[in-house]
Structures are given as C-alpha cells and as structure tokens.
Design a protein around this nucleic acid. Structure first.
Lengths: 199, 199
DNA sequence: CCTACCGATCGGTAGG
DNA sequence: CCTACCGATCGGTAGG
C-alpha cells in the first residue's frame, strides 16, 4: 500500500516532467500563443483535460516551464568563488552548451520576443530575467576590472547590456542559419577584445 | 469618368496602405500567429472578407507588410558614396530612428523570432534578410579597414555578425525596458571601440 | 466592399 | 486520468 502510493506519486512526477519537456519544445516551435494544450497532451500520450489536471491553465504551464529551466540552468552563472574573467568566460561556455540544445534556445528566443507585449503572461518574468542577466554581466565586468583584466574605456554597465544583447541576437542568427553561426566563437572574440588577459 | 476612376483607384490604394499600417502594428503586438484578420480589418473600418479583397491570404498580407517596410527603409543602409565609417555610423543612426518607432521594432523582433521555425511563412524572407544584413555590415567594416580606420584584430566577418546580433538583442531589451535602453548609445560605444577615428 | 456561412481548433469545464 | 461538451474565435469561401 505504501509502495503503491509511492509508485503512484513517482508516476505523477514523471508525467509532470514529461509534460514540461514537451511543452518547452512546442512553446519553442510555435510560441506561447501558437502552441495548443491538445498537441502537447497528445505528445505526452494523454488527453488535454488530463494535462490540465497537472497544470490548471495554459499560463501556469508556461510559467512552470520557464521556472523549470531556471532551476536546471541556475548553477551555470553566478557561481561563487570564480574570478570575474572566469565568469565572463562562463557566458561563452553557456552559449557553447546552448548550441547543443536547440529546443531551449527556441523557447527563450521566441517567448521572450512574444513577451515584450505588456499583456503577455510571461512579460513580468522576462522583465525580471533581463534585469538580472544584465546586472550579472555588469558585476562580472566590474570584478574583472578589480582584477586588472579589463581594458581601459570598457564601461561595466554598457558592456553588460552589450554582452546580453549579443547573446540574444546570436541565438536568432544561429536558429535562422540552422546552427551555422558560431555563437561561442563570436562571443569569445567579443570578450577577448575587452580583456587584457587570455580568456 | 476618368476622374472618378482615378479617385476610385486612389481610394483603393489608400485603404491598402491603411491595412498595411494596421497589420504591421498587430503583427508586432501579437505576432503573425496571434494576430487575426478580423481585428486588423476592424481597425481599418472594414469586414475581414473586405480585407481579403486586398490581400487574398493572411500569409500574403504578412509578406506585403515586410516588403513595404524594406521599400520605405531601403535607403537607410547601403547608400552609395559614403565612407565605411559613415556606413557603420548609419547602423547607430538607424537604431536612433527605430527608438521613435516602437511598432516597427516590435514587428521585426517578434516576427523574426517566430520565423526561426522552418515552416513559418516568413522563414525564407528572414533567412535572406539576415544574410544580407550581416554581409552589409561586413562590407562596411572591410571598407573602414581600407580607410585605415579599423583597429588591428577586428575581423570584418566576425564584427559584421556581431553588429547585427547586437542590434537585435538591444531591441528586445529596449522593448522589455519600455524604451529605457539606449540602443544607439550602446551601439556607438561598441563601434567606437573598434575604430581608430571618432564616429 | 457586404452578410452569412463553412469546418477546424482553441482553452477550459462538467461529471464521472 | 477519461469522454463529452461549452462558447469563442480562427482563415477562408459563397454569393451577391
């Protein structure tokens, strides 16, 4: 009985994870508005009211997908103990990892663009996310300056916004060129030109 | 009779232009998939079959909107006679102009992200558009090099992809920050760091 | 340019 | 988790 209950919960959690994966893929392919609960549910082998048992609304599903990604990727940036230069290199390393995960790149590229509309359900999420990304980059530059590794004339605030913008724009080019754009290479060249030491 | 015919054609052309303007705005607000012909038609004061009299399908309307923008903005870049440095400055000037036209920025930001899907009706359009933008930027850098205005270590091909990526990424940040991001300022700082002369 | 309609699909609910 | 259904909305067509 206890074993059955545990198996039951485990099965529910597994299905929940499967829904998050399939939803991430379809939100990336078609955007939030273009994706339908029925298609996501079918890909998980359940009906769409079955999906709504796990996530009560389409909006809650989108937010769960975004939060799930942040949990999984949270350790990639903002790691304590690293030098500023290492943290800047981490942005390029993240781009390198992303080049192996088209679904995730599509998700953030397509949904962040959709979410520039003030009435989009993920608008507040992306406003917060960009503010944090830009300030993370800015702090990494400021730390590199303290380490004497930053070239004169590079302003951490400007450079932070620049770095995040560059990463986003490269993702669009990478998706449109079917993977031909070397995101990490372009990023490393950009960072190298701002630093006095090798990356 | 000739006058009446001329007035009739003029009215048709005016309505066509009104449809293109309203379609541009709604495609930007809601994306291609999220925009509906009925809403666009209502904003123009006609029924949606009325709209379909001017543009036979939703897809043809989207492509007409994109081509209309290219015609209007075509002269901003690729102007003959300018120096490479002036043409690079033109990219920043375009960003400055775009900061006064939220609807146009939304259109390209949202629809280009949607169009990364291979089955999107504007996919081929954006693949072509990016290839041309990147090579325009690349040629401007190569020209600046010939003028002796480009710093050592700046590779025109890399720098071209970088500049276009930066412009796109800044547009997302500008839209999400409700106009607080200084697109032209960040771009000018980026260009200035690559040049040996004042912009 | 219109009204009226087509079949398809949407997110969500009822009731089990 | 299911079937069956709700009202709303979609792009496009018929016929005028």
């Amino acid at each position: 009985m206890a074993a059955e209950a545990r198996r039951g919960y485990a099965k529910g959690r597994a299905k929940r994870g499967e829904i998050l994966d399939q939803a991430m893929a379809l939100f990336g392919e078609a955007g939030y508005r273009g994706a339908s609960l029925r298609v996501i549910a079918t890909r998980c082998g359940i009906s769409h009211p079955g999906l709504l048992h796990h996530f009560p609304t389409k909006e809650s599903l989108l937010l769960a997908v975004l939060e799930h990604r942040d949990e999984v990727d949270g350790e990639w940036l903002g790691l304590g103990g690293a030098t500023g230069v290492q943290r800047l290199g981490g942005f390029a390393a993240l781009a390198e990892l992303n080049a192996t995960r088209r679904g995730i790149v599509e998700l953030f590229c397509v949904v962040s663009a959709e979410a520039t509309s003030a009435d989009h359900p993920a608008h507040a999420y992306f406003v917060r996310r960009y503010a944090r990304s830009v300030s993370d980059a800015e702090r990494a530059y400021a730390q590199a300056r303290e380490e004497g590794a930053l070239r004169d004339g590079v302003d951490p605030a400007l450079a932070g916004a620049q770095l995040i913008a560059l990463m986003d724009g490269l993702q669009v080019q990478w998706l449109l060129s079917d993977g031909a754009t070397d995101m990490a290479g372009v990023l490393r060249a950009h960072l190298q030109a701002q630093l006095t030491v090798r990356l």
